[in-house]
């Protein structure tokens, strides 16, 4: 009864329902994005259940089966130590996704807070922070990651941090822009009038309203970060062998490229599929969350 009254007061006569249901129904109409969503879910499931579905333990060396081409026994062949490539790639997906999600979370939190405070407080603080972000963006992000990674050292956590730092400026910019666009709204004014602290307003009112661009950016970033992580591992920073990571598997197969293609080829195919899925899903989400943008 109360709701009906509210609807009446709103005056548009529409049934009140969740914004996320709208997004979902719009996303469902985009077949390519739905296929990519399924691929992404499969990738996540594979990452979680890698130990159950891998045909062989990823580290099991078998000197008698070195560098075999794909066969029914080893669907993607074996590597230079006779380890099953499919198992290594499945486990590698686990590491790539894990590091990438860690990096996204770190840069989202840091960049989001920087951007939200800059946009909210404005003034000299805003100018200084945004200038710093501009400078950070001026350095090619891969080289920046190489630099930080060289200083921090290798390993899963350090790699996530190195990649996360390169992602901070874009989040800061995005959140700042969104905050600026909603700052003038009346509900913010009302929250201030009610005596909320600035931090509470940022966390409770501003951030929920900038969520959709953040979700889109994060989806795209998971893909971009997987690429960067594999790049770092490929050049010998990042995740170190024997931990399987797509970039490091390729790096170990590089010296055999003349006579044996599977070690460098298949992890790359995995990256292409993963990135493609995340990119298309990100685009689909963007269209679904902001239908005005779609052309």
């Amino acid at each position: 009864m109360k709701n009906k009254k509210a609807d009446f007061l709103l005056g548009d006569g529409t049934k009140k329902h969740s914004q996320w249901l709208d997004v979902w129904s719009r996303l469902r109409k985009n077949p390519l994005a739905m296929i990519c969503l399924i691929i992404v879910i499969l990738l996540i499931l594979v990452a979680i259940f890698a130990p159950l579905i891998s045909p062989y333990p990823y580290a099991k060396q078998n000197p008698g089966e070195k560098m075999l081409y794909p066969s029914w026994q080893h669907l993607l062949g074996t590597d230079n130590y006779g380890r099953d490539l499919l198992s290594r790639i499945l486990y590698g997906g686990r590491i790539s996704l894990l590091v990438s999600v860690m990096a996204v979370v770190i840069s989202l939190i840091v960049g989001g807070l920087i951007g939200a405070t800059a946009g909210y407080y404005g003034g000299g603080y805003d100018t200084t922070i945004m200038r710093i972000m501009d400078i950070l963006m001026g350095i090619p992000s891969f080289l920046f990651a190489v630099c930080i990674s060289a200083a921090l050292g290798t390993g899963v956590v350090n790699t996530a941090v190195a990649i996360a730092i390169t992602g901070v400026p874009s989040y800061a910019r995005l959140v700042r822009a969104s905050v600026l666009s909603i700052k003038g709204n009346e509900f913010i004014e009302a929250a201030t009038a009610l005596g909320n602290t600035n931090m509470r307003i940022i966390l409770k009112h501003v951030i929920p309203n900038v969520l959709s661009p953040l979700i889109v950016q994060s989806t795209l970033n998971i893909g971009a970060f997987i690429m960067a992580i594999s790049g770092l591992s490929f050049v010998g920073l990042g995740v170190q062998p024997p931990t399987p990571e797509w970039g490091s598997i390729m790096s170990s197969g590089r010296q055999y490229i003349r006579d044996f293609y599977p070690i460098v080829t298949f992890p790359g195919v995995a990256i292409v599929i993963t990135l493609f899925a995340f990119n298309i899903l990100g685009d689909g989400l963007r269209d679904a969350m902001d239908p005005k943008l779609k052309k």
Partner: peptide
């Protein structure tokens, strides 16, 4: 172009080596 954007450049390089040189 979207598939190309999903390829790490080092992998693309390796694949080009395999196809055009090897």
């Amino acid at each position: 172009s979207l598939i190309l954007a999903s390829m790490p450049n080092f992998w693309l390089g390796l694949m080009l080596i395999i196809v055009f040189s090897q």
